[in-house]
Nucleic acid binder design. Structure first.
Lengths: 225, 225
DNA sequence: TCCACACTTCGCTCTGGGCCGAAGCATTTG
DNA sequence: CAAATGCTTCGGCCCAGAGCGAAGTGTGGA
């Protein structure tokens, strides 16, 4: 016994309320500065600094210095997946941070999860693309079919620039509110970004909610009807 | 802010060394008694009892009373997935519990992960079945193709009994040592069980290692050559 | 019936680690 | 060059919670 990796270390890292709040805030996919994260966790900058150092040392966060600011972001999709998974377990166990605040409904409808679309809208997007034959599974990962390729380009996304990034084009992500998969990976991120530039949706600043405009919502609905 | 599920609670739960050791031990998929788990974590039964109560209350473990024993097992695949994910992160961060003990190599070669085969052998099984066309992805989950169906039955597994269980037949699991998917779900469990009854492999008692016999190994290799 | 064993509850101790105040660097701005 | 701002280091306080001993409950076997 006592072989294998030490789960306790990283789990304890995530298990501190302050650090967990920081991670949850970063799950939007945006990079945040140390002081912003301190505010998010309701602690002083000194304390936040210590936390962020630990999170970086264990490769959960990746720091980027920019002038006198220091931006932090979630290291990669593996970290995001684990945090997502933990949210799922917490939800099922009935551990919620507040008694279901007002924006909770909005979060369940649409939110950003590591820069891609999650919540009901995310699931609809994913399942719509599957049922239309835009996505297919093949071997180890999701594939964008030729018709799917055309669909995405018709949205105005330049796939050649998206495709050459290192991380995979399509992935699935299982999020907490809907126990279903939705589209993640570079394509997932590109689509959410495209929705924003098209003016279909915009992100709420203080929460992870994604707010669709009326036109945006109906345009979205037409894609899969 | 402060919306959504409270990750910190469950992460802290997993983050205690004693509880983490218990969970790691249970990741083999076997159900263990309270005293066995206490020994696994190097603590007294009293302390273990308190830990196990918390883990059960948060739905991470599922207790089953049997006579004067109380068996605990991992609640479901969602929990197993998160623990697997944490192992992956810990491995990448360089957090290992010992300085790579002797059985570490065996664990990387083949081990049980929530009752299915993981490690190199697990990946070979999964990728072999994919490349032979036994498995295909379709919509939201893995499908066993007709030829795959025949392959599994030829192994001597009664698929009709496996299929009627509630949890899905095929799933993927990403484990820590090989950053690749391997076959999970009911079929994954049935196959490992079949390997054991065929005498191809047996589980090490004190670790999660799965030891293949020489004949078992070569029989396995012939399946996919 | 009595003992052995598995598990639980209670009360207590003690330490690891989160938190802040104060002070120290670094970078931008005026 | 100051002054302001963002981040970090140091030192000390404090408490949640993990741990155990002792004693209680329930089940199984002789």
């Amino acid at each position: 016994m006592k072989e294998g990796p030490d789960i306790a270390r990283i789990a304890a890292l995530i298990g501190d309320p302050a650090r967990a709040n920081m991670l949850a805030a970063l799950m939007s996919g945006k990079a945040l500065t140390a002081t912003e994260l301190a505010a998010e966790a309701n602690i002083t900058p000194q304390t936040a600094s210590a936390h962020l150092r630990k999170l970086s040392e264990s490769k959960l966060l990746r720091p980027r210095k920019q002038g006198r600011h220091k931006y932090y972001e979630i290291t990669d999709e593996h970290v995001a997946d684990v945090v997502s998974g933990l949210m799922g377990l917490a939800e099922k166990a009935g551990h919620s941070r507040t008694r279901t605040g007002p924006s909770d409904g909005a979060l369940r409808h649409a939110r950003s999860c590591y820069n891609h679309l999650a919540g009901d809208m995310g699931v609809w997007l994913f399942e719509g693309m599957c049922s239309k034959g835009y996505l297919s599974r093949n071997g180890d990962d999701l594939m964008l079919t030729p018709t799917g390729w055309a669909f995405v380009e018709a949205l105005g996304i330049d796939l050649t620039s998206v495709e050459k990034k290192a991380s995979p084009l399509c992935r699935e992500c299982l999020d907490w509110s809907v126990r279903r998969s939705h589209l993640s990976g570079n394509l997932g991120r590109a689509i959410l970004a495209r929705f924003e530039t098209l003016g279909w949706a915009k992100r709420d600043i203080s929460s992870r909610a994604v707010l669709f405009t009326e036109q945006g919502q109906s345009a979205f609905d037409q894609l899969f009807e």
